[in-house]
């Protein structure tokens, strides 16, 4: 596996990273339980918008993909598809222990156990499920990472594309399903 080197960023990228860090639009993919703590995080009590973050409708517009919980194989295909539709630079945040190691569903026949085999995760938030405070905290962390140019999972994904693809194929068989369920 090819590791992304700590590269020197050009001035353009440094400035760009400053903007990206202060304006994170998220694609909140509601994959599992973790999604239930997103509304409190977004709404009046914790008010994510003060960090410059906000929900966006489609992956094209978003910067960060929130994987809020366990991923069934059926969902993982859609998540990968969504991730590939996003525009660089893009970041992935995994919520809860399920994305980390399968969590409570470690022996389930339908859910995967480790997200970073399939997508480059920049940041994990531990907990089942993470509390809004933890989410806010880790978003602060993400902002720091982007500012410093450390969140480069997207580069990693580009450079190790074969490795990721092979993993995806091993577990899923087929990422883009060709059966469209026409009736």
């Amino acid at each position: 596996m090819h590791e992304v080197q700590k590269n020197d960023r050009s001035l353009w990228e440094v400035v760009g990273d400053y903007f990206r860090a202060n304006s994170i639009w998220m694609k909140w993919y509601c994959t599992g339980c973790g999604a239930i703590e997103m509304p409190p995080t977004m709404t009046s009590r914790f008010d994510m918008e003060q960090l410059g973050m906000g929900p966006m409708a489609t992956p094209r517009q978003a910067d960060v993909l929130l994987i809020t919980g366990y991923l069934s194989t059926k969902t993982l295909r859609r998540v990968i598809y969504s991730y590939e539709q996003m525009q660089d630079p893009k970041y992935v945040v995994g919520f809860g222990s399920c994305t980390l190691n399968g969590g409570i569903y470690y022996d389930s026949y339908a859910t995967i156990n480790q997200l970073d085999k399939y997508l480059p995760v920049d940041l994990y938030i531990a907990g089942c499920m993470p509390r809004p405070e933890a989410i806010m905290n880790s978003f602060g962390e993400l902002i720091e990472m982007i500012k410093k140019g450390e969140a480069k999972g997207w580069k990693h994904y580009k450079e190790n594309h074969e490795w990721y693809k092979a993993n995806q194929m091993d577990s899923l068989g087929e990422v883009i399903i060709h059966d469209e369920f026409h009736e």
Binding site: V15, G16, F19, R20, N22, S23, W25, G52, D63, Q87, D88, P89
Partner: peptide
Amino acid sequence: IDIFKAFSKSS
């Protein structure tokens, strides 16, 4: 910031 961020991304 939002607008400039959008400009700074790939498309």
